[in-house]
């Protein structure tokens, strides 16, 4: 018989293990949006036979929570999520099963058991690397120097509230033009290394580029390619603390470079 509206019988099995995962968006799959990834990850859970726990209620959802996702089009070596399981699993097996169930490029690279608390409390900044093909090193260096020297850099950007003016300078902890690889056959490509604090509204690599346009009329000749290299808590030295560092005894896989 069809079940009457209201509530399902019984309840969902409780969570017995929480696991945090680091995953990547590489190559062409950097164009995966967060929604796309979330759908793919849910399917990967089913394919991999992960004993995922579900939320209570009439429309149960798998227990997956995400830390701030990189924007569509930006590659990442450091995306984080946490899952709740109804049966304990071996972390190494979990990582391998999920990685095999996701498209190549969406790679699960590290797993730790959650010590409790919120994953978001381990992250307040990120390091980005922005490649600017066709741009000369010194052009970028001058623009970055002007940006760093400014007290504030206001840009126009579209937010959910409509167009608004945002200061992109305040969120930037450091911005450095790093020397690009040189050699025969290498297309000139300037590289920008950024450490940006997570603020609201979010300041993304393209916002910083918009800021470079404001302060130095910087116009990249080709679309930039950004990669998020790390996320974590910002130390007073301006370093980013690996969010799994404290849980490393149980960590599986190589620590992030």
């Amino acid at each position: 018989m069809g079940r009457p509206k209201n509530q399902p019988e019984g309840g969902q099995a409780p969570i017995v293990q929480r696991v945090r995962l680091r995953y990547t968006k590489r190559g062409p799959l950097r164009f995966t949006s967060h929604r796309d990834f979330a759908r793919a990850f849910e399917r990967a859970i089913h394919r991999a036979g992960v004993p995922i726990a579900y939320s209570q209620g009439f429309s149960p959802h798998p227990k997956v929570s995400y830390a701030s996702a990189a924007p569509t089009g930006v590659a990442s070596e450091a995306e984080y999520l946490e899952i709740g399981l109804r049966e304990p699993v071996d972390l190494n097996d979990l990582m391998r099963a999920l990685d095999a169930a996701l498209s190549p490029g969406l790679d699960v690279v590290e797993a730790v058991e959650s010590p409790g608390g919120s994953l978001a409390d381990r992250i307040d900044a990120g390091r980005w690397r922005v490649e600017l093909p066709g741009l000369a090193d010194d052009v970028l260096r001058l623009a970055v120097e002007a940006f760093v020297a400014a007290d504030e850099v206001m840009i126009e950007r579209l937010t959910k509230q409509g167009m608004r003016t945002v200061d992109v300078r305040a969120a930037v902890v450091s911005a450095v033009a790093v020397p690009a690889p040189t050699g025969v056959g290498v297309v000139p490509c300037a590289i920008l290394d950024l450490v940006v604090r997570q603020v609201s509204p979010t300041v993304r690599p393209d916002d910083v580029l918009a800021g470079l346009r404001v302060v130095a009329d910087l116009e990249p000749p080709a679309p930039p390619r950004a990669t998020r290299l790390a996320q974590g808590l910002l130390t007073t030295q301006g370093e980013i603390l690996d969010p799994f560092a404290a849980d490393r005894p149980t960590a599986i896989g190589a620590p992030s470079a």
Binding site: T72, G73, S103, G105
Partner: peptide, 17 residues
Amino acid sequence: EALLPRISKPIQYVGGE
């Protein structure tokens, strides 16, 4: 790839299913 950041829903053109 150089065109994809400039269009809507670029994921539909990259394959990898």
